[in-house]
Structure formats: structure tokens, C-alpha cells
Design a protein around this nucleic acid. Structure first.
Lengths: 225, 225
DNA sequence: ACATGACATTCAGACGGCATTCAGGGCGGT
DNA sequence: ACCGCCCTGAATGCCGTCTGAATGTCATGT
């Protein structure tokens, strides 16, 4: 999952970066509305954290522009305490959730999880596919109840496939959502991770759609494919 | 465990600080409702001691604001003797326990332990994990009945991990709950404490989840991982 | 069947996070 | 004021993970 943070305060920006990175997201940062808007329009984010009180181009303007451009990623807006009008404006502009500063990073993470779940249509913090189960909260995976040891990148790949299970996910999409901006990954790292994942969760779970990408399936459900 | 004390009387504040610090908690102090509310919203406390009779912004108002903001840490309110209405107001506002002034620090500590136990879902004052046992009442630990000598910070780390055993605890979370406000700990003190703890309680009890944090496990329960 | 391209697998080196050790300094106890 | 314990932060080394390239395998179209 790849997240854009638009926040002008350097301290808060760093704090958000750390919290989200630790939680296993790929994070891009923007320090003002202009950069933020550009990144949002350019890169395929899964969610955005947007401060409304930005210098130059303010948050509401950015958000409106995104929505008018047809971008649908979930957006959490940050508002200063007591700025009621801002908050209302933000919702009208198309925000999905809000947090008033100051806030606990834990609360941000909880809301982020909820939003991503909603956006991908899952009810709980655990996603299942057959007897394969990924707990996005604890960042752990189990097969038939047995816990699986995954490295952080393996986990990211699996989590993304789980969020989009059943669908064919192109390799480029995986790369874009697992790495942040500076990926020149012209190599075959994704194939390597897919290989390792298959060894850990079973060979028949990740189908290769030749020329298209990968698809996560429940082996019990679709034996022949 | 990190605790916030909101109390305007300097003497009582100092007394509370000393008692709680001696008991092994990390303590932050606020002398009025405004500062108290801000800290409560900003820092991740495990519990709060809140005097209701505060100047300027009074305690009930602060507590209400916290609860409305979705903060769930347990709160012990302090009321002057005979102020029944205050007490009721406090409970309505979301208090978990109360003490009438004057009180014995012993009683405060006992209630604090009870509250923290309840909050983290443990029945007794002793938490166990395999043959490792931590008595939060006496602030002592034993392995297979043998008492372990722990320094205060070692104990704090272990106690926090025990309260959250089985879960992955990020290093930053440990830092935030073990130190009070003035932590710029950009160093590796946590790794050092983890290392010392492992030497004292056994190497296989604190698992490292690379890139995520530490997890306390019962070695007998999950042999392969 | 063959050529071609796409994907799988394996591996070594680079990298970074974590463990360990140690000396200096602060703090409390005597 | 002295002593000892503990905390802290830096230095060092280790080990798991990531990465990119080389090689092997398979599917597809001709």
C-alpha cells in the first residue's frame, strides 16, 4: 500500500513518515500543496493524508482538484483544533475521514486501516482467501492457522495481492505500490518475491497470467484454472 | 507504563510524581487543565490521574473533551471530600475510578495497578508468560520461580512487553511508554535493554520482528516460528 | 519442432537493521 | 564527598534481507 502525505510542518511530516513506514506502507512526502497535488495526480496512491492548512495552495483546493480530475483514492484530512468550517469544507470537497491536530499516531493508523479496508471492500482487519489469512493490523500471515514468517517486502506483496484477490495484478502495479518514488527497479525483484511467497504459502495460490500479471486464488475454490 | 498527572496543587503534584515514579511508571505532570488536555491528546498514556478541581479549564471538561476525541486511556479522578456531585459528573464524563482527597498513596497505587490490569485484560496483579512471571505489585520478576534482578528500566521494558505479550511492539512505542516527555532517544538504548533482558530471562523469549519491533512469546508454546 | 519471449530459479554481493560491547557520566546511597 | 550502580550513546561486527544478473524452464506463435 502506497500513501502520500501532504504536510508543511517538517516535524509532523517526519512523524507521519515514520509511523506509516513502520506500519509497512510505502510513503511519499510533499511539503506544500503544489507538489502534493502533482504527486497525487501522477502516482497511483492507495490513500492520502492531507493537511488542510497549507501555505500557497491550500488543502481544500488540492482535494477539489483531485476529485474533479476523477481521482478516487481515500483521503484523510488533518485540521487544526476548532477549525470547524475547514472540516466541513474538507468533507464537501470529498474527504473520507478527518483527524484534528494533535492526534495519536495510533489513531491515524487505525483510521488508515479502516479506510483501506473500506476502499477495498473488506470488513475486518484480517483478509482471508481460503485458509490463507493476513492480519493487516499485526502484519502477520497464517496458512491453515500456522503462522508464516514473511520478510517486510514479501508481506507487502502478499498484502497487496490479498486486497485485490481474484483480480489480475500487473507486475508494474505491484512495483508501484510496494516501492515509493525512487524505484528504478528494472530488475526482476518481483518475480523473486513471488517465488519466495509461493514457497512459503504454497505453489497453487498465486497464478501467473502470462503477459498480464499475477492473480491470487483460493486453491480449494478453483481447482482447475 | 506512562502516566499523566493533572493536578494544580504543587505539593500534591510532587507527591503523586514521586509515588508513581518510585512505583516504576514514567510520569508527566500538568499543572492546569489546558496543559493537561493538550498532553492527553498528544502523548500515548497508559493511564491518567486527573484532579477535578482545577482552575481555568476544570477536570470534567477536560475528561469530556478527551472522551469525545475517542481517547480511551483509563482515568482516575481526584475529588475533594464530600463533593458528591463532582464525582457523579466525573463518572458520567467517562472516569474509570475515583479517589477522595486526602488519600493514601498506597491506595492510589493499588487502584492504578487494578486499572492497568483491567485495561490490558489481565485478571491478577501477576502477569505470566510460560514460566516467566512479573508481579506488577512488587515490581519483581521470576523465571521458573527463581527471582530475577532487574534494573528499573529493564523492568519497565519487560512489564510493557508482558502487558502486550504476543503482539509486535514497535521500538518507538516502547520508547514512548517507558520514558516521559523529554525523550530524544535517537540512540539504541532500547536494543541495549532488550539485550540485557534476554541475558537475564533467556534468549528465546523476546523475538525480533525485523523492521517491525519486538514480541514476547512463551517459548514452550510456539517452538517453531 | 523451433524460435522467441516471458517467467522461474538460483546465487553472490551489497546493504541495512540489529546485537553486542564498552567507556564516560549521572545519580543515589553511604 | 566518595563509591558503586545504572543509564546512555558510540563503535563495531553480525546476520538477515534485498537486489541484480545468470541460468533454466515453459508457453506461445510460426
Amino acid at each position: 500500500m502506497r500513501i502520500l502525505v501532504v504536510e508543511d510542518d517538517p516535524d509532523l511530516r517526519r512523524q507521519l513518515d515514520r509511523a506509516l513506514t513502520e506500519a509497512g506502507y510505502a510513503v511519499d512526502l510533499a511539503g506544500n500543496g503544489e507538489d502534493g497535488q502533482f504527486l497525487g495526480e501522477t502516482e497511483p496512491y492507495d490513500a492520502v493524508v492531507l493537511d488542510l492548512g497549507l501555505p500557497k495552495v491550500d488543502g481544500v483546493t488540492v482535494l477539489k482538484a483531485w476529485r474533479e480530475a476523477g481521482l478516487v483514492f481515500p483521503v484523510i484530512i488533518l485540521t487544526a483544533r476548532g477549525r470547524w468550517s475547514e472540516k466541513v469544507e474538507g468533507f464537501d470537497a470529498g474527504a473520507d475521514d478527518y483527524l484534528t491536530k494533535p492526534f495519536h499516531t495510533e489513531e491515524l493508523l487505525a483510521r488508515m486501516r479502516a479506510l483501506l479496508r473500506r476502499a477495498t471492500g473488506h470488513a475486518t482487519s484480517a483478509i482471508e482467501c481460503g485458509d490463507l489469512r493476513v492480519d493487516t493490523r499485526a502484519a502477520r500471515a497464517t496458512v491453515a492457522g500456522e503462522p508464516i514468517r514473511l520478510t517486510s517486502h514479501e508481506y507487502k506483496v502478499l498484502a497487496y495481492l490479498m486486497h485485490h484477490r481474484g483480480r489480475v495484478v500487473p507486475r508494474t502495479e505491484l512495483v508501484e505500490h510496494i516501492y515509493d518514488q525512487d524505484f528504478d527497479r528494472d530488475s526482476n525483484t518481483i518475480e523473486v518475491f513471488i517465488g519466495r511467497l509461493r514457497r512459503k504459502i504454497g505453489q497453487d495460490r498465486i497464478m501467473t497470467e502470462r503477459g498480464l500479471g499475477y492473480r491470487l486464488v483460493d486453491p480449494a475454490e478453483s481447482p482447475a484454472q
